[in-house]
Design a protein around this nucleic acid. Structure first.
Lengths: 189, 189
DNA sequence: CGCGACGTTGATTTGCCTCAACGATTGTGG
DNA sequence: CCACAATCGTTGAGGCAAATCAACGTCGCG
């Protein structure tokens, strides 16, 4: 499955596929596990084979803010910490029992050496993620909460049943209370 | 200068450097030129040798929102449009007379073939940009306008004199009027 | 069962926006 | 070189979206 994900952008030989898998660890986590804590250095990138995770951070006022959800086929990490080697600000939490492929930073570097094509793969992945973040940034600057919620529904239709409403509120950038009222108001139409 | 920028992350041979430069165009634009229009397909990535540019988009209510500034040594583009080949939403405007190195998408693809190390370079570049965008996103969700302005001042001290105040207001996500009042209030302390 | 997390609803407050009017500055054409 | 327009920044009055605080019902789970 992770190999399919890679095959969308680059072509690996059978040997390269095996090498890649040899440098990753398959792990199963139950719901509510936290696999990355703020204040610690992040050492892995995670690919979600099945299940659902989220990354979030907690600000000075002890309010959680959801940075991202990761469903099947998505990658998730604390990229700042992973790249800089500094303690990060993000928590990564498992929302449903999940099977993930963990790729350690050192293994990633080794793989870049052994299979230079992977540079291309992760470049493309990162580019797409950057575009998505740019769009979300602009949306936060120029759309109302209702419009952002509409977009969220279209983009992540499956998530709406799965994740607690307060986390969706946090993702789109409003309080749970306001979100509840907004939703009620939208239903009335 | 652009070669120095590349040398920060990867090492090119003399021949590779020449090849790279051969696939780029050096251009000088006067202030107020617009080198990329929303609604058109973006074909280039630009590296700023000297001067200052910005990218912004205009929403349904005909309000400008600044996505990014690009000073000396920075790259700028409409990445969504460049990657997708679809008409973009961004304008890229030259704020001061600038010397830029334009890298066409086709040339970039050729260079990836000829100098695979460049995949690594642009991967790293994109990763750093992604981390910065993630931080800005979180800041917009959890900081007040004053705090965002403080961060902006620390991050871009040189810009404050150079760019019109309304563009800084737009970057941090408030109206020019509110920004003006906020600034006055902050000075009073 | 009973606790704790979640969602809802209401009253009140506030950060920021909108609209409007007004100087200051820039720049541009006659 | 001046006159006038255009753009920019400032300030004030009023309004609205969203936050805060608090109370309460509900549900899932240990």
């Amino acid at each position: 499955m992770i190999l399919e994900n890679i095959a969308r952008h680059i072509t690996l030989t059978r040997a390269e596929q095996d090498l890649f898998l040899a440098h990753t660890q398959r792990q199963i986590y139950p719901a509510k596990s936290v696999i990355q804590y703020a204040g610690t250095v992040c050492k892995h990138t995670y690919f979600v084979q099945s299940g659902l995770l989220r990354s979030f951070y907690i600000n000075d006022h002890i309010v959680e803010h959801v940075l991202s959800f990761a469903c099947e086929g998505w990658w998730i990490s604390d990229m700042y910490s992973l790249l800089s080697g500094q303690p990060g600000n993000l928590f990564i939490e498992v929302l449903e029992e999940s099977e993930v492929i963990a790729l350690a930073k050192e293994d990633q570097e080794i793989l870049y050496q052994e299979i230079p094509k992977l540079e291309r793969f992760f470049r493309i992945l990162t580019e797409n993620s950057l575009v998505a973040h740019q769009e979300r940034l602009m949306d936060n600057l120029s759309l109302t909460a209702e419009e952002r919620f509409d977009k969220f529904c279209k983009k992540y239709p499956t998530l709406i049943q799965k994740v607690p409403q307060k986390q969706i509120a946090s993702y789109i950038g409003v309080t749970p209370e306001f979100f509840s009222k907004m939703k009620a108001k939208m239903l009335r139409k």
